[in-house]
Design a protein around this nucleic acid. Structure first.
Lengths: 201, 201
DNA sequence: AGACTAAGATACGGGGCCGTATCTAACAAG
DNA sequence: CTTGTTAGATACGGCCCCGTATCTTAGTCT
C-alpha cells in the first residue's frame, strides 16, 4: 500500500466483500484462501483475521451485505410479458457475484456443511423467487387458478434457466426466455383449466 | 501395501478410476490432488505419474471408462409411465460417481476450461438424454406432435430434477417425479394440440 | 502537538502438495 | 530358477498457505 492511502471502516469492509466474491469466482470454494483474498484486496492478512476467522465467514458476510435483491413488480394485464421480465430479472441477479456465491455453496453443499448452514441463516426461506412472484400475483387477481401454482410449476422457469447455463456455459438469450415462458410455464399454468385472465398473446 | 498383494494392469487402473471419482466427491475439483487420490487408492504417487500428468487427466479417463450409460427403453402405450421411468433412470445415473464428476466439471467450467474441453471429447453431443428419448420415441410412433418437442420441452424433466437437487441437497421422491411429469412435461407436450395417442391416465 | 486506533508489512514454524529421483520388491513369463 | 517389468516406498527441494506474533505507520480525534 505504498501508493494509496489507507482505507478504514466501512470502505475497507466493502472492498474486502468485493474481493472475496471476486476471488471465489476465480478460484472456487475449494481454493478460496485468506491469502488470495488479501492479495486481491491489496491488504494484509492481519486485517482479515482481525474480523473473520475463516474465508467462509467473510464470504457469508459478503453475501448477506448484497441483499435484499430486487424482486419482480408485476402489473396486472400482461402475464406473458411479466413472466419474461421476471426471467430477465433472474438473469440480472445471476450475474451478480453474490448470486454466483450462493450458487457455488448450494452446488457443493455436502462438501461445506457449515457454509451451507450459514447460508440458510442469511436466507430463512427458499430465497428469491422470480416467476413465482408473478404467478402468485396473477392468481391473487383471479387470472390464474391457484391450484395450478404447485412447487413444480413455480420452479419451472428458474430450473430451465439454470440448466441452460450449466449445459452451455452461457446465458439464455431473449428468444430462449420467451420459449421457456411459451413452451413450459404457460402450458403448465393453463393445464386443467381454461384461463380466464389476460395473457397478452 | 504391506498386507495386500500388488494390483497390476487393468485391476489397478480400475481401482485408480474409482479412487479419483471418490476423491472428487469428497474434495471437489479445487482440492483434487494426486496425493489425495494415491492415498485413497492405497498406492504410490509414482504409479499415478507413470500414467497421467495431472489429476484432471485421470479424472477424464475415469469418466470415459464409466460409459456408455443405460438409456431408457420406452414401450409404446404408456407415455406417462415411461416418462416417470426415464426420470428414475436419470436419478440412478446421477448417483453414479462419474455423473457427479460430469456435473462438477460443467458447473465449474469457466474455472477449468481444459477439463471442460476434455469432457467435450468424451461426449461429442449433449450427453445422455432421458425424457427426450421417450418423447422422441412416442413422436415417431405418431402419438405426439413432433413440433411440440422443442429443446425447452426436452429439457424440462432434467432441469426440474437438477434444480430440486441443488435447492434441497437431496433427490426428488417418487411423488415429485410424478408431479414433474403431470404438471410440467405432459402439459407442455399437450400444448397447442390434443394428443391422439396413449397416455395411460 | 500528542495519544490512540487500526491498517498494513513482514517474519516464522509447520503442514500439505508438487514433481522428480532413486531404490526395493512383487509378480509374470520363459 | 532367472530375467524383465512394474508396483510401491520414500526422500527431497520448492512452493503455497496457515495462523500467530511483532512492529511500523497512517489517520483520526482532542
Amino acid at each position: 500500500m505504498a501508493s494509496r492511502s489507507r482505507r478504514r471502516g466501512a470502505e475497507l469492509v466493502a472492498a474486502l466483500h468485493a474481493a472475496v466474491l471476486a476471488e471465489l469466482e476465480e478460484a472456487g470454494l475449494g481454493r478460496l484462501t485468506m491469502e488470495g483474498v488479501a492479495r486481491r484486496a491489496g491488504t494484509a492478512k492481519t486485517t482479515l483475521y482481525r474480523r473473520w476467522a475463516t474465508p467462509g465467514a467473510l464470504l457469508l458476510e459478503a453475501i448477506g451485505a448484497a441483499y435484499p435483491v430486487e424482486e419482480p413488480s408485476p402489473a396486472a394485464d400482461d402475464l406473458r410479458g411479466d413472466l419474461i421480465r421476471a426471467l430477465e430479472l433472474l438473469l440480472e441477479w445471476s450475474r451478480h457475484p453474490s448470486a454466483r456465491a450462493v450458487q457455488a455453496i448450494l452446488t457443493e453443499r455436502h462438501r461445506y456443511p457449515e457454509l451451507t448452514a450459514g447460508l440458510q441463516e442469511v436466507f430463512d426461506g427458499a430465497g428469491s423467487r422470480f416467476t413465482a412472484t408473478v404467478l402468485r400475483h396473477y392468481a391473487r387477481l383471479g387470472h390464474l387458478d391457484p391450484a395450478a401454482l404447485t412447487p413444480v410449476v413455480e420452479d419451472l422457469g428458474e430450473a430451465l434457466v439454470l440448466k441452460y447455463g450449466i449445459d452451455t456455459g452461457s446465458e439464455p438469450g431473449p428468444d430462449r426466455l420467451a420459449e421457456i415462458v411459451d413452451q413450459a410455464i404457460l402450458p403448465a399454468v393453463r393445464a386443467g383449466r381454461v384461463p380466464t385472465g389476460p395473457e397478452s398473446e
